[in-house]
């Protein structure tokens, strides 16, 4: 079996898993071991539970799966799907790396943007993809997010963003660093316009993305157990030569230190997001 086909969703359940349909247990079904409870979880069970283990552990989700899970059926209208950047530094191996990633993930870039409805509430939505170069931000990612905020300003829409990122895409050098400034400026304008921006931090959100639009939300939610931080844990350990405290840089750690508003399990997210969107309806009328 070819790798790209293997990774693409095979059925509706895998692609989204909105309803928990009773699933036939197949003796030979593939399983995934949960790093938390160590049990082998049948894939069908995992998919029907939005990639969460019965023990509460949240597995990562690709962007498409997350959009299918979060939004009302058929409501997602994707923007700029074909938008790609260049290789501004002519960085060795970057072109090939992009190509293999595109083949294996079926996506063109590390973020998907568009408009959608979440339990009926209209919004602009961006969802980053951990399986596309770990959601790293190069020119195209920055550009898609900036365009989305600019569209949201014109149409007076709230923005919901699910972040996952290793940070800036180093193969694009300074151009990727500048995306932090560009996206922040767009967020600032959206905020100036009195519009609502909601962030859902998912595992992992780090580096240049964490230090820009991921931390700019009017409300910032996080998924349980997600790693969220500026510097990588290994780098910090090497710098301070100390063992890091238990739960360091986890969502709950950020909650305790006052940097996220709430830790919300995946299965409650649709409800919470739509409630927040409803609270901010009619900010428009001002």
């Amino acid at each position: 079996m070819q790798l790209p086909q293997f990774l693409k969703p095979k059925n509706e359940l895998e692609a989204g898993g909105r309803q928990s349909v009773p699933v036939h247990r197949d003796e030979n079904e593939m399983t995934k071991q949960c790093p938390n409870c160590r049990r082998a979880i049948p894939l069908s069970l995992l998919w029907s539970q939005a990639n969460t283990c019965p023990c509460g552990y949240h597995f990562r989700m690709n962007a498409r799966q997350r959009i299918n899970f979060l939004t009302d059926e058929g409501s997602f209208l994707e923007f700029d799907r074909e938008l790609v950047g260049t290789d501004p530094l002519d960085f060795p191996g970057y072109g090939e790396k992009l190509e293999t990633t595109r083949n294996s993930s079926g996506e063109i870039e590390a973020v998907l943007c568009g408009t959608a409805r979440i339990q009926g509430q209209p919004c602009c939505l961006f969802v980053m993809d951990p399986y596309f170069m770990m959601g790293s931000m190069g020119w195209a990612v920055g550009e898609k997010i900036t365009r989305l905020f600019e569209y949201a300003i014109r149409e007076r829409l709230p923005v919901v963003g699910c972040t996952v990122s290793g940070g800036a895409r180093m193969q694009e050098g300074l151009v990727s660093l500048m995306q932090m400034a560009k996206t922040s400026a767009a967020v600032q304008r959206h905020s100036e316009a009195g519009l609502f921006y909601l962030v859902v931090l998912t595992d992992p959100t780090t580096g240049g993305v964490m230090a820009s639009f991921a931390m700019d939300g009017d409300v910032i939610l996080a998924e349980p157990g997600a790693t969220i931080g500026f510097a990588g844990a290994r780098v910090i350990e090497q710098t301070v030569r100390k063992k890091l405290p238990q739960g360091f840089q986890k969502a709950e750690f950020l909650l305790e230190h006052g940097f996220v508003d709430a830790v919300v399990p995946r299965k409650e997210q649709r409800e919470t997001i739509s409630m927040l969107l409803k609270f901010h309806e009619g900010g428009d009328a001002l």
Binding site: M210, A211, F230, A231, G232, I236, G258
Partner: peptide, 15 residues
């Protein structure tokens, strides 16, 4: 890159 810096929100401060 340190423990205190993360606890006090290095990323948030930059953002």
């Amino acid at each position: 890159c340190g423990i205190g810096a993360e606890e006090r929100g290095q990323g948030q401060a930059i953002a």
